[in-house]
Simulated scan of single mutants.
Amino acid sequence: MIGRWLMNKVLDPLPVWLQLILVLAVFSPIAWNYTFAAKDAAFVFHNHVDRPIHDVNLNGKWIGGAAAHDGNGPGTSGGAICCGKLDSGEVELTWTVSVTQSQYDVGLRKQSKRLLVEIPERPNDELYLHVHIFADDSVKFFWSESTRSNYQIEQSKDAFVNVFEKSN
């Protein structure tokens, strides 16, 4: 109500052409940025290691962490972390591998890891960068339109085929 009163007090005395210019001046940069600027990426981290992984950073941007992988399914995920600008090319990936209580009891301790990795080219409509870390410290990246990674989809298909073939 106050906003409408204020807009009427400011815009009513102005000619229509000047009102139009003011509205365009305010909304044009927003439309330009939304249409032509580089879109931010959301990050989804997948842990394929039997130890918890936390403090995962991609070029200094925190992208999450996840519980230990139990060996079933396509890896545990820490959910989606939004948003950051990211270009394709070489980036630094750092993470900390932690321990569960039983792993701590047998002498394992947390370790910090660091890799220089290549980010794949980003397709136009894909928002989510999936980061998969495996037990041998190898890393795979996938772009996706959803929080489901291409790797998860392929793993699910393979698991379905294996189960289906074994049951027949």
Rank of each mutant, 00 (worst) to 15 (best):
residue 27 F to S: 15
residue 57 N to D: 15
residue 71 G to V: 04
residue 32 W to A: 15
residue 59 N to L: 04
residue 39 K to W: 04
residue 47 N to P: 04
residue 40 D to P: 10
residue 80 A to M: 13
residue 67 A to M: 04
residue 48 H to A: 04
residue 38 A to Q: 15
residue 80 A to T: 13
residue 23 V to W: 14
residue 68 A to M: 05
residue 44 V to E: 09
residue 66 A to K: 00
residue 25 A to E: 02
residue 24 L to W: 09
residue 24 L to T: 08
residue 40 D to I: 05
residue 61 K to C: 03
residue 57 N to R: 15
residue 72 N to E: 09
residue 47 N to W: 00
residue 78 G to N: 01
residue 27 F to D: 10
residue 79 G to M: 06
residue 35 T to E: 07
residue 31 A to Q: 09
residue 30 I to R: 12
residue 55 D to Q: 15
residue 53 I to G: 05
residue 48 H to V: 00
residue 69 H to L: 01
residue 75 G to I: 01
residue 79 G to P: 03
residue 33 N to D: 10
residue 27 F to P: 06
residue 63 I to L: 06
residue 35 T to Y: 06
residue 54 H to T: 12
residue 65 G to F: 00
residue 26 V to Q: 07
residue 29 P to S: 05
residue 43 F to L: 09
residue 44 V to Y: 03
residue 80 A to K: 10
residue 69 H to R: 02
residue 66 A to R: 00
residue 66 A to M: 00
residue 65 G to L: 03
residue 31 A to D: 03
residue 75 G to Q: 07
residue 51 R to V: 02
residue 74 P to W: 07
residue 51 R to A: 13
residue 54 H to K: 07
residue 38 A to G: 08
residue 27 F to Q: 12
residue 52 P to A: 04
residue 64 G to D: 11
residue 42 A to Y: 08
residue 74 P to I: 11
residue 47 N to G: 07
residue 24 L to D: 11
residue 54 H to R: 12
residue 49 V to Y: 11
residue 71 G to Q: 02
residue 25 A to I: 08
residue 46 H to C: 03
residue 61 K to A: 14
residue 26 V to C: 10
residue 41 A to S: 14
residue 24 L to N: 09
residue 26 V to T: 12
residue 52 P to F: 00
residue 77 S to R: 02
residue 49 V to R: 00
residue 50 D to Q: 13
residue 36 F to C: 08
residue 71 G to R: 04
residue 24 L to H: 10
residue 75 G to Y: 00
residue 61 K to I: 15
residue 24 L to G: 13
residue 48 H to Y: 11
residue 54 H to D: 10
residue 46 H to Y: 12
residue 43 F to Q: 06
residue 59 N to R: 04
residue 38 A to R: 14
residue 55 D to T: 09
residue 38 A to T: 13
residue 55 D to C: 11
residue 65 G to E: 11
residue 28 S to F: 14
residue 60 G to V: 07
residue 57 N to F: 13
residue 50 D to H: 13
residue 28 S to T: 14
residue 80 A to Y: 00
residue 59 N to P: 05
residue 55 D to H: 13
